[in-house]
């Protein structure tokens, strides 16, 4: 059923009208014209669509608009900018992490929550926190280096 929603995305409020069962992903991409996050699976299996909902990494591809409520949505674009980058974004560039880069929303948004809550994560902490995210190009080694580099920058 079509309803009116007020979405707080990257600090801005947007009023939209849409099917309440529509996943947040499509509101962000089609209604708000944000080019991140990405559609990877629509099944919460890969992470390409990950955003923060009140700081919690969430798969927007399976989150119906009706479930978003007044929680604040932050996407990769809202995490940091080239002028004010999040340390993970800086580390990603410095480590030259991505191959195709389609997966990066999942890894960066999930790692950002980890580093917020755990200032000195071990290798095992990082791997556990990132468990389940997919990178088909196999950039895992560089991802792990970047998260460690960002942790060092933040520590």
């Amino acid at each position: 059923m079509t309803k009116k929603f007020s979405l707080n995305v990257n600090g801005q409020v947007h009023d939209i009208e849409a099917d309440e069962r529509m996943p947040l992903l499509y509101a962000l991409r089609d209604e708000l014209k944000l080019n991140n996050p990405h559609f990877g699976c629509g099944l919460a299996q890969c992470g390409a669509c990950t955003v923060h909902l009140d700081g919690k990494p969430t798969r927007s591809c399976v989150t119906p608009l009706a479930a978003v409520g007044d929680r604040k949505v932050v996407t990769l674009a809202g995490l940091g900018t080239s002028e004010h980058p999040h340390p993970l974004q800086t580390a990603y560039v410095q480590e030259q992490v991505p191959q195709c880069a389609y997966c990066i929303n999942g890894w960066i948004m999930t790692a950002a929550a980890l580093l917020r809550d755990n200032k000195k994560p071990t290798d095992a902490d990082i791997r556990t926190a990132l468990h389940g995210l997919k990178c088909r190009c196999g950039t895992h080694m560089a991802i792990l280096r970047a998260v460690k580099r960002a942790a060092a920058m933040m520590g």
Binding site: L34, S82, P85
Partner: peptide
């Protein structure tokens, strides 16, 4: 890489 990391 940077444009992708900053969603641009």
């Amino acid at each position: 890489i940077a444009p992708k990391v900053f969603a641009q």
